[in-house]
Computed example of a mutant assay.
Amino acid sequence: MSFLNSFDISGYGLSAQRVRVNTISQNIANAQTTRTEEGGPYRRKEVVFKAIDFNEQFNKALGESTNSAKYEDPLDEGHFGKKVNPAIMSVVVDKISRDDRDPKMKFDPAHPDADASGYVAYPNINPVIEMADLVEATRSYQANVAAFESSKDIANSAISLLQ
Rank of each mutant, 00 (worst) to 15 (best):
residue 3 F to E: 00
residue 4 L to W: 05
residue 4 L to N: 11
residue 4 L to G: 01
residue 6 S to N: 11
residue 6 S to T: 07
residue 7 F to G: 04
residue 10 S to R: 05
residue 10 S to P: 08
residue 16 A to P: 05
residue 25 S to D: 12
residue 26 Q to V: 02
residue 27 N to V: 01
residue 27 N to H: 04
residue 29 A to T: 11
residue 34 T to V: 03
residue 34 T to F: 06
residue 35 R to L: 07
residue 37 E to N: 12
residue 39 G to Y: 12
residue 39 G to T: 08
residue 41 P to L: 07
residue 43 R to G: 04
residue 43 R to Y: 06
residue 44 R to M: 06
residue 45 K to C: 00
residue 46 E to P: 00
residue 50 K to A: 13
residue 59 N to L: 07
residue 60 K to M: 14
residue 64 E to S: 14
residue 65 S to R: 15
residue 65 S to D: 11
residue 65 S to K: 14
residue 66 T to H: 07
residue 68 S to M: 12
residue 68 S to T: 12
residue 70 K to D: 12
residue 71 Y to T: 11
residue 80 F to D: 08
residue 85 N to H: 10
residue 86 P to H: 06
residue 86 P to G: 02
residue 87 A to Y: 03
residue 91 V to M: 13
residue 93 V to M: 09
residue 94 D to R: 08
residue 94 D to I: 01
residue 96 I to S: 02
residue 98 R to D: 03
residue 100 D to R: 04
residue 101 R to S: 12
residue 102 D to F: 01
residue 102 D to V: 04
residue 104 K to I: 11
residue 106 K to D: 05
residue 107 F to L: 10
residue 108 D to W: 02
residue 112 P to F: 10
residue 114 A to Y: 13
residue 117 S to A: 14
residue 117 S to D: 14
residue 123 P to K: 03
residue 127 P to S: 01
residue 128 V to M: 08
residue 129 I to C: 00
residue 132 A to F: 01
residue 133 D to T: 06
residue 134 L to M: 14
residue 138 T to V: 13
residue 141 Y to I: 06
residue 143 A to R: 04
residue 144 N to V: 04
residue 145 V to F: 01
residue 148 F to N: 03
residue 151 S to M: 03
residue 154 I to P: 04
residue 154 I to F: 15
residue 155 A to E: 02
residue 156 N to F: 02
residue 156 N to Y: 04
residue 157 S to E: 11
residue 160 S to V: 10
